[in-house]
Simulated assay, not measured.
Amino acid sequence: MNRRDFVAAGTTLAAAAAVTDFANPLHAMPAPSTALSDMTDSSTRATRKILIAGGGFRTKFIGLMAQLSGKARPRILYLPTASADSEQGIISFYQSCAPLNVEPFVQRSFIASTSQLQDWDEVLLSADGIVVSGGNTLNQQAIWKAQGIDVILRQAWDRGIVLGGASAGSLCWFEEGTTDSRPKVLSIVKCLGFLPGSHSPHYDAEPGRRPLYQKLIGNGEMKPGYACDNDAGLYFEETTLKRVVSARVGAKCYYVDRVNGRATEKVLEPEQI
């Protein structure tokens, strides 16, 4: 594999981002450009699916992912790159899957050739759903690009494998968002860009998230996008928002736009799952 540049330039708060106004967050959003591959002809591929939560992608969300796969007993893969393959996170994933009729398995990213005998595509493309862990989004993106996992995830998306996760596992699918991946302060991180616009997880759980997200969108440093409370999430087909869901009463999602140089926040009321 050829060496790749895997840390995007201009990822600090001072970096300016082009502003796109999305008039209605429940309508299709324009697909962003991507360096990973050309868009596949929609007539020759499955429907692309992404299910995210602001935090807490546990049994109810994994159960919904299983339903969206359309399989009687889907294979659900856990990809804990952002958590440095945390053993506790892996145990929690298996515990969340235990009540469900799914086949859970894990793909670590910190591997060795002597023990990892299947290539990334052999493992990831064998799944019906892929749950991405929370953790350090910046490190996740760097490792995925260095290993070529980002390219395989794009193939999985094109094949209709349901992608998802919470925190770093929700942020990673958008063009950009706010992250705690760097020292001292929240900052901007550039991600895969499967979904256009920006994202903020943990909207109700971490005090700095909401004001920073509104500030960055209001002053044009970040594109408009979606924010999710912990236990609340969004389901996209292609780049169209299809469902707003919640595993906890009171948890909501939001669309944050820029209107006349100021951030506006629209509540997206969820259905309970």
Rank of each mutant, 00 (worst) to 15 (best):
D158K: 01
F105D: 13
K145R: 15
T114R: 03
L68S: 04
A82L: 03
Q95K: 11
A82Q: 02
V162C: 10
A146H: 04
L153K: 13
L79M: 14
G165H: 10
Q116T: 02
I90T: 05
S167R: 03
Y94S: 09
L125N: 11
T114P: 00
L163V: 02
G160C: 12
L64G: 01
M65R: 06
D158V: 01
V123I: 09
E176I: 00
Q67F: 02
V106E: 07
L100Y: 02
G89E: 09
L138G: 07
R154D: 14
G135Y: 05
A156Q: 05
S133F: 05
W173D: 08
Q95A: 12
I111V: 09
V102N: 06
S126L: 06
G148F: 06
D119N: 14
A146V: 00
P74C: 13
L124Q: 10
L77D: 07
R159A: 15
N139K: 08
R159I: 01
I161G: 04
M65H: 05
A168R: 07
L100N: 02
R108L: 10
G164R: 06
S83C: 08
P80L: 11
A98Y: 06
D119T: 13
W157E: 08
A72F: 02
L64E: 15
A82I: 01
V162N: 09
T81H: 04
I111Y: 10
G148N: 09
Q88W: 05
E176S: 15
P80G: 13
A98V: 00
L68V: 00
E87A: 10
G169I: 01
W173S: 08
D158C: 05
S92P: 00
W157C: 08
G70T: 00
L100W: 02
C97F: 09
I161Q: 07
C172Q: 11
